[in-house]
């Protein structure tokens, strides 16, 4: 391998070359995503079992979610995924300014997502639809409707935390990009964050029909 002799600043000592380092990071990231899938998996299992036990209650309860807000948020996240992908592409082409624009766009869309979530949540809290002990709402027919809202708040809540985390990391990437830390040779952090961000999108793609579109 010819590039062993060149020793870029970002190469850590226990790797022989940047290629090995980048591929290690990527494998590590994918395994991290795998653990994320299984972490959410417990909640999906929770959802699946209680829905199979109480299909009617789930149907009745879901009517209290606002499809349009959910759909808007789906669109927002998909577009932010696109801007994230384009941010990586721009860095691959060495267009630093463009990368910054796309990263900023991604953060902005993520914030829009959280604002919409805020309105949804506060409406439900107002109605007394928080899970468990805090559930006071009387208008849903079926057994234990508070469990629907447990699932709803847990799954969208955990997802929301991931969005918040993403906002933090992407902002950090934005600053690093502005400082010129990345180049077409080295942009691993952007690429890894991209993978993470797409997974967050991917989970939402399932949450949306599961909660907002129960037929």
């Amino acid at each position: 391998m010819s590039q062993i002799t060149e020793h870029p600043a970002h190469l850590q000592h226990h790797f022989t070359d940047v290629h090995q380092q980048a591929e290690s990071a990527k494998l590590g990231m994918w395994i991290f995503l795998l653990t994320e899938v299984l972490l959410f998996g417990g909640l999906f299992c929770f959802y699946a079992i209680y829905r199979s036990w109480n299909p009617d209650m789930f149907h009745n309860a879901h009517a209290f979610l606002n499809v349009w807000m959910g759909a808007t948020n789906t669109v927002v996240l998909i577009v932010s995924s696109l801007t994230m992908a384009l941010a990586i592409r721009s860095m691959q082409l060495g267009k630093r300014k463009l990368t910054m624009w796309f990263l900023a766009g991604t953060v902005l869309l993520a914030c829009v997502f959280m604002v919409i979530k805020y309105f949804e949540y506060s409406h439900k809290i107002h109605l007394g639809q928080l899970p468990g002990k805090w559930y006071f709402f009387e208008g849903i027919a079926g057994t234990n409707p508070h469990i629907f809202f447990s699932a709803y708040f847990l799954m969208t809540g955990l997802h929301g935390f991931h969005v918040l985390g993403g906002i933090g990391v992407i902002t950090w990437l934005f600053i690093k990009t502005a400082r010129g830390s990345f180049s077409p040779e080295y942009y691993t952090p952007i690429e890894m964050t991209g993978l993470y961000w797409h997974l967050v999108d991917l989970i939402w793609i399932f949450l949306f029909p599961l909660f907002y579109l129960i037929g």
Binding site: N54, P55, D56, M57, Y135, A141, G142, T143, N144, P145, H146
Partner: peptide, 11 residues
């Protein structure tokens, strides 16, 4: 808790 009489038939 929260069981409503009218829904027990529909399952």
């Amino acid at each position: 808790i929260y069981r409503k009489a009218e829904t027990t038939t529909a399952l």
